[in-house]
Amino acid sequence: MKIRLNGDDYITKAASTVSELLIELDINPLRVAVELNMAIVKKAQYNSAALKDGDNVEVVNFVGGG
């Protein structure tokens, strides 16, 4: 399916949940926060948070800052 991921178009390979998307992207779920259509997805909900075509997903982490 086609989603918006961090501002770019992204075609998922097999992922149908947030949890599967993070695995697909090789991202450590403990070090990020995920927004699905502007709503934060709690870590406990990654497994159940289903993705659908056209979803807007943001994955953020910590970078150097003051």
């Binding site: 991921l5 961090n6 501002g7 770019d8 992204y10 992207l25 090789d26 991202i27 450590n28 070090r31 990020v32 926060a33 943001e58 994955v59 953020v60 982490n61 910590f62 970078v63 150097g64 800052g65 003051g66």
Partner: peptide
């Protein structure tokens, strides 16, 4: 230790992560 919140670099997963260097078990983030 202060940090900023920014998008993960999705397409280059080899870039190092700040938390590989600043251990959250040692420092308060």
């Amino acid at each position: 230790v202060t940090v900023a919140v920014r998008r993960v670099n999705i397409f280059d997963r080899k870039t190092p992560n700040l938390l590989d260097y600043i251990d959250p078990k040692v420092y308060k983030i």
